[in-house]
Design a protein around this nucleic acid. Structure first.
Lengths: 160, 160
DNA sequence: TTTCGTGCAAAACCTTTGCAAAGTG
DNA sequence: CACTTTGCAAAGGTTTTGCACGAAA
């Protein structure tokens, strides 16, 4: 069974300001800083991720970048590398599939996934910051978080 | 490789009021209401989960309830059934392992996982409620959420 | 040139499924 | 007794690993 790989596109624009190229430049900079080589595969993935934003599963990326003839394994390894240096964030929608999204201060947000039609909406407000302060007070540093919401969207509700 | 299965115990008491048995009673009630049979396996798991609370992976439970001679598959199926009727909540710590925790209104909370020593602390404050209101305004109903924090605990920080 | 990254094949791992036997109400 | 649940075995799907070849600095 090929679970819920095809999820709806976002219903709102993540980047109405067309700041893709800036994000890409910064990303390539981070790559250098981390002494990772600027290979074709990595550049192709960063171009895609900064423009389309996500979240995408490794298989999604493999399919959507198939003209680049990259191995799925390379995509897994590249995403792991990107995650380690903070270029992407891993999302978990609870279906056993990892999804990744380009991460930057500006772009940080969370999602609601409709339990029925699997559509994804962005939530711009990140209330986790208040909790983050609590976590800091507990003595933690270098804090990150995951937060996803699940619900029934209005369309699915009205359809019964 | 057997990833981070052995996580530290919580460093604070979840239930200083010893309300295990009450929670267990209510859980068994929910079982009946959902027309699920009160089998040995289910009762053993509920006893364990209401007392020790979690979060536990299926394998954790299998190991810790090994005197009951339950098959791992039974544990998977039971957890799935419990999750469906809201008796447990699934947590994702981003390491590819599902962990489950007994869920009740009183017990609802989130975690911080130390990236280094894997210790888990509870966060009692659930700031997700404000975001939940935003999600409601977007038209969603029947909303649930996952939220986990990751950081470096003070012990690990001082050890370098 | 030296180090790092990629592709391919295979393995590891967690989770799910099918079916006969046993248990529950 | 009718129906659900369990155990066992096997399969499924995602992710990881090993190694030789190729690419980047």
């Amino acid at each position: 069974m090929n679970k819920a790989h095809k999820l709806h596109k976002h219903t709102d624009d993540c980047h109405p300001d067309h700041s893709h190229d800036q994000a890409l430049k910064r990303a390539l900079q981070v790559l250098k800083t981390s002494s990772l080589k600027g290979t074709q595969a990595r550049i192709a993935m960063l171009e895609f991720l900064t423009e389309k934003h996500g979240p995408f599963s490794p298989e999604d990326l493999h399919r959507m970048l198939k003209e680049k003839n990259m191995d799925l394994v390379t995509i897994y390894r590249t995403l792991a590398a990107f995650e380690k240096i903070g270029l992407v964030r891993r999302c978990d929608f609870g279906d056993g599939i990892s999804r990744y999204e380009f991460e930057s201060e500006k772009s940080h947000h969370h999602h609601v996934i409709c339990k029925s039609c699997k559509r994804i909406d962005n939530i711009d407000k990140c209330a986790a910051q208040k909790v983050q302060r609590v976590v800091e007070e507990m003595g933690y540093s270098d804090i990150s978080h995951n937060m996803e919401f699940f619900g029934l969207c209005s369309d699915c509700k009205s359809k019964g």
